[in-house]
Design a protein around this nucleic acid. Structure first.
Lengths: 312, 312
DNA sequence: GTTAGCCATGAGAAATGTTCATGTAATTGA
DNA sequence: TCAATTACATGAACATTTCTCATGGCTAAC
């Protein structure tokens, strides 16, 4: 007789994912479900409540008043649940540990620092260290017990190492704002032939642009190296050459019109980031939650990233 | 790789029911599940978390530290969910209405008043009226549109009326604290024969003790009537006779030793309370939530009541 | 006027939750 | 101390829910 109101946390997570992702399809990717499942589930929830939650007309999808009220509940309840689960994890595994982190990619510091700050708030007992300098073989550091966690774009299987996917991101070609190539919607390998390629000081086989796009096409432009992201941007802006950087790293400069950016190839050049840890550490609560925190933080903050298949 | 942590509101409701009911079996009754389902589900939750939540050794069941942390989450999250659902109901049906309530049972005012206060807090737009005086046929008031909601112990099917079960409660026999019958663990019909029976001023066929216990046994003690619960208690305490009242109504007097109480029959004399509304009103949000509120409030406050089969 | 991209839908498959029928341990009462 | 009672656990069968697959319709963009 009374309303069953069969609402579950699943529904709140769904609604949150839908609004954050801006659509059912994108939400489905984030939740590692099919679009169909998300559509079915949302409809079931709306039917159970007897109220529509999202405006299907608008794009990006908008919420109804009822949807906004439920989203408010999600925003207040889900963090409480996360906090409780963290406390339970601490109860189970202890709340102290050490996490020496090696990072393969130069631009990763941009988002890693804030994520580490967020993590420190909830795991004050964990000693965080960031290993400096470029590492030729960061996975080796894991096995040598010199690092405990590595962020890498190449999850090559190795004994005793397990990987967790973080996210996929797009490498954008950078060019001066008024460059002739800005007329194109996206760039081809040949477009790079006549320009200097400005990169971080790493071996050529670590550059996705060279390895996956230019080399296969037989294009081999001259290279110039720079240590810092801003230095690369400055060189591009002053017409010394082209560069390719992750979308999130250049977003603020694009907004200000300092440089222009174009996709590389029709579907863009997409790369991935993964976390590697020793197999024995993967289940430890403070390690698992670091990975969770980084991932959540990234999706909340970084523009133009997308979920990867696989666990998590 | 990371912990799935498949926790749902269902689990929180379960844990709350288990602690409030003080055991798995009692919790199962409240949730309208079998004891087996509760046991399975609790075990699944503990396995998922990798932590025990309840101490199975102790009786009544105790919580582990992990269980207490999760219960704290339940206490904080579940009311938020309820509040959100109420807001959605208001969005759907409107937040105003009128609720004229007729009550069949004298002692019901004890718990109905606080429940109404709680309800008023969340539905300030609903006009609450309590119809005074004894009603011979309260269901008739519903059909005549003179009342909107009736609390009754007799859910006799009638066209256009739907019932929702509230709870079952035990009628206890009251006797002076030092009376000879206090030596018995429970009373038989014959025990009433030599005493005056003190009751509210209602027809004999409305007294469960007479109709279901004494009359079938051929026992017909003299009666004396009193208007107020305290008056009945005073008469019993001063040895003018015996009485039978709901357990919850006399609990405070029992604690103080003002009167003694014994079950009536080996398994006690159990009665039920139901809510009746017109069929068309049952789905209205402010009506359904009144019933929910009353039920929740009752289980939180009243000692010695038990859930009934049926919806809700 | 195609071509994509996005959401909806129905049917079947998979996963999850519930009950039933017992078993076992702890507690109560002669 | 030995039934009798009460409460929780467990495995298998059953029921329900949730997910995926395979489509179809709709809209916006070349």
């Amino acid at each position: 007789m009374a309303n069953p109101a069969h609402i579950e946390l699943r529904h709140l997570r769904l609604l949150q994912a839908v609004t954050e992702a801006g659509g059912l399809t994108a939400a489905a990717e984030r939740l590692h479900l099919t679009q169909s499942a998300v559509s079915h589930q949302l409809k079931a929830l709306e039917d159970a409540l007897g109220l529509p939650l999202v405006e299907r007309a608008a794009r990006p999808l908008g919420l109804t008043a009822a949807g906004r009220r439920l989203l408010a509940l999600a925003h207040s309840a889900l963090p409480q649940v996360d906090a409780a689960l963290r406390d339970l994890a601490k109860l189970k595994d202890g709340d102290a540990g050490e996490l020496r982190i090696a990072v393969e990619c130069h631009t990763c510091y941009d988002w890693l620092m804030p994520a580490m700050d967020a993590y420190r708030d909830v795991w004050p007992g964990v000693e965080l260290d960031l290993l400096g300098g470029f590492q030729a073989d960061p996975i080796g550091l894991l096995l040598d017990q010199q690092a405990d966690l590595v962020i890498t774009s190449d999850p090559a299987p190795r004994a005793g190492i397990v990987y967790a996917p973080l996210f996929g991101f797009e490498m954008l070609a950078l060019l001066p704002p008024d460059h002739a190539l800005t007329a194109k919607k996206w760039l081809q390998p040949a477009d790079f032939a006549a320009h200097t390629l400005i990169t971080y000081p790493v071996p050529e086989d670590r550059l996705d642009l060279v390895r996956r796009v230019l080399a296969p096409a037989g294009v081999k432009p001259p290279r110039r190296e720079a240590q810092l992201t801003v230095a690369i941007l400055q060189l591009v802006a002053s017409r010394r050459g082209l560069a390719a950087l992750p979308a999130w790293a250049v977003a603020p400069y694009l907004e200000r019109g300092y440089v222009a950016a174009r996709p590389i190839g029709k579907h863009g050049l997409w790369a991935e980031l993964h976390v590697a840890v020793r197999a024995g550490d993967a289940a430890r609560a403070f390690v698992a939650d670091f990975i969770d925190t980084v991932k959540r933080d990234s999706f909340a903050r970084l523009p133009g990233i997308r979920p990867l298949a696989g666990s998590g």
